[in-house]
Design a protein around this nucleic acid. Structure first.
Lengths: 189, 189
DNA sequence: AAATATATAGACTGATTTGTCTATTACAAA
DNA sequence: TTTGTAATAGACAAATCAGTCTATATATTT
């Protein structure tokens, strides 16, 4: 059960790397098996299908994402600073991943209507992120009306998402930097 | 050369439909040939490769997109109303396409680093859209400093893009509606 | 009518796809 | 030591992938 010798873990890590860098449809299970040095039967023993492996990939990506996000926001105390920490984490994560964008949005673009289960994973992840950000924004704006704070919360979330996809297009941090400035304005000086 | 009987046009239309609804990698050329009733040799005669067909798909999608955008903005005269018309066009287009999202972002997520030419098409399209919106926003805010207007222009663009991807996730118009409200605020009452 | 260009049908290649199956090996617990 | 579990290697299936090629047929133009 220790990392390197556990076939299931090895497979998931290799699949995660390949799905992200090459795309889900462009990655065959044979390549995953070769690079993780796992037998084909083991894949179907542990995951049952490529689709299920894709779901496991999204699940682990979600855990990783929120673990990172928590780490960055917990370092700050004021709600507004926590919101800005989300943006700083985003810039950090995008750089770390060479601007390959969001694992969930990339997958969503690939699967079309062929995997409702993966789609559900993606929706849940994004809905959770939306609530996460909205909660922080609302706490940053205690004097605003619920309607106003709600709108600003969604706007911060949509700017956040916009920054992800645009940084992937331009392979640059300008979208994140613009978004951070704009959010600072929206949350007040 | 009249529509239905022109193999090249027939192929491109069928490929566009299939690439968009099924994804680029998930669509084989054989399916395109069958559904467009075109011989395989004709495809390679006119396009040379599947990659080139993908590029032609993106080119025609760009023309279509800006033709639609122009139509909606030309109907308004005040710059601010033109910006809002962009959002209205977006909502119209997303609905029309059953919330399948942006053809360019979908493709970008699929090709990873396998097609620099397609990537270039995507970058050019988005850069053009960014300039289009920024120009309208700057004209909407004549009394703002260039730096402020520039930031708001990019923010509107990023909200616009965010609305596209989020409406695809949730298959709902709430992101577009939130973005329209927020942009109204940003451009002043 | 003859010549040229374009489209069609479809065989074929060689590689790859997901998934199943058999048979063998390694290891751990009883 | 025996028994049961998990991993391995790899053959195999049936389908599909992009792309090439030959041969035939249809139009258009000169």
């Amino acid at each position: 059960m220790s990392g390197k010798s556990d076939p299931k873990q090895r497979m998931l890590e290799t699949a995660s790397r390949l799905f992200y860098t090459q795309g889900y449809n462009a990655t065959g299970i044979n390549q995953i098996l070769e690079e993780s040095k796992v037998a084909k039967a083991s894949l179907y023993q542990h995951f049952g299908s490529k689709d299920q492996l894709g779901i496991a990939y999204l699940q682990s990506a979600r855990e990783e994402w929120f673990a990172g996000l928590d780490k960055w926001t917990f370092a700050k105390h004021a709600p507004k600073q926590k919101v800005l920490a989300c943006i700083d984490f985003l810039e950090y994560a995008l750089r770390m991943n060479d601007f390959r964008g969001c694992k969930f949005l990339n997958m969503l673009a690939e699967i079309a209507d062929s995997s409702p289960l993966m789609r559900q994973q993606i929706i849940e992840h994004k809905a959770k992120l939306r609530e996460y950000i909205k909660e922080l924004v609302i706490r940053s704006l205690p004097s605003h009306s619920p309607e106003e704070a709600d709108l600003i919360g969604d706007s911060v979330y949509l700017l956040f998402e916009g920054a992800i996809v645009e940084s992937k297009i331009y392979k640059d941090t300008w979208p994140v930097k613009s978004v951070k400035k704009m959010i600072k304005n929206m949350l007040g000086e």
